[in-house]
Computed example of a mutant assay.
Amino acid sequence: MALALPQLPTVQRLLAAEASARRQAWEAYDADALEQEISKYKAALSDVLDELQRLGAGVDDDDVGEAADAEGQEGIEGVDWRYGSVDELDAREWQVPPHCIPIHANVTTYDWSQLIAATQFDVIMMDPPWQLATANPTRGVALGYSQLTDQHIAQLPIPRLQRNGLLFVWVINAKYQFCLDLFDHWGYELVDEVVWVKMTVNRRLAKSHGFYLQHAKEVCLVARKGQDPPGMQGGVGSDVIYSERRGQSQKPEEIYQLIEKLVPNGKYLEIFGRKNNLRDFWVTVGNEVTGQGAPREDQRAIDGGLRIPNAVYGRAG
């Protein structure tokens, strides 16, 4: 039986609208208008559910909960996603924080010299799209870094961005030793690590596939170069974070809170960031910080079937 969409004008309008037009409309909304739009979506989805139930195709709430809590949804180590609910939408996450500095650029082609000349950072955090020899990169395809190799990550000018300070790097098991070697190469020493224990909405372990064991955590290695950053406050937080999974490749808000307590009023930089990583008082560099795809010059090359100019390509390291 077909869904009687003519009886559901709100749903029909939403389905008919172009994605680009909807996005432009959303970005023009203030917080109150955005809340109203979200309410319309919730009401429309409720209408759809009522219609499905009328047609005898209703979904049991318990089945939805079990599906959303199923183990192994992530599939590949380092890829973080789960089924969500419209009830979880937060209008604040749709807005660009007013005091953040997003830099929309491909990190492999970005001219870092101006940023290096402008300031030195107390804390740098990055979540590289690690390339695996036997699988897709952990999130490289989505970010446009599908050919990024270990050597290309090693070529990032991290030592020039930070004379003294802390470096936080999210790492997967297969790249743990490489990351330790990378610290040596860049002139850093390993000083600590943070473990994120990933939880479901029902506070169960959010397990994903692993070669030997199922994985329910991610590790962020902490390294130091030179001296501790000015004003650093040691012992202010735990090295274990219990937090729900959020958007794709989105790290928990607690890691930012921990860094900001550890180095209050510091200069913070995140590399390989996305729109859902933007945060007040952070500089975020990445080719998806706008949430609208790659930088213009990259997209023109992709649309033309060409490689991104000056981007790095090659075999996985």
Rank of each mutant, 00 (worst) to 15 (best):
A4R: 15
L5H: 01
R13A: 14
W26F: 09
W26C: 08
A28Y: 06
Y29T: 12
A33G: 15
Q36S: 06
Y41G: 06
Y41P: 05
A44S: 15
S46C: 06
S46Q: 15
S46V: 10
L49H: 08
D50K: 13
G56M: 07
G65L: 13
A67R: 09
A68W: 02
D69Y: 03
Q73L: 09
E77C: 04
G78W: 01
V86W: 14
D87K: 08
D90A: 14
Q95N: 08
P97K: 06
C100E: 13
T108H: 13
D111L: 03
W112D: 05
L115A: 00
F121Q: 04
D122W: 01
V123Y: 01
W130A: 03
Q131F: 00
L132V: 11
A135N: 11
N136Y: 09
A142E: 12
Y145V: 06
S146Y: 11
Q147Y: 14
L156E: 05
Q162W: 02
R163T: 02
V169H: 01
W170R: 03
N173Y: 13
Q177I: 12
F178M: 13
L180Y: 10
D181Q: 15
H185T: 13
L190D: 01
L190G: 03
V195Y: 05
A206K: 01
K207M: 14
S208F: 02
F211M: 12
V219N: 10
A223S: 02
K225A: 00
G226I: 13
G226L: 09
Q227Y: 09
P229A: 10
P230Q: 12
V236P: 01
I241G: 01
E244R: 13
E254A: 15
N265C: 10
K267G: 09
R279P: 12
W282Y: 00
V283Q: 04
V283L: 02
E288V: 08
V289C: 06
Q299W: 11
A301F: 06
G304W: 00
L306V: 13
R307T: 13
P309E: 05
A311F: 09
Y313T: 07
G317C: 00
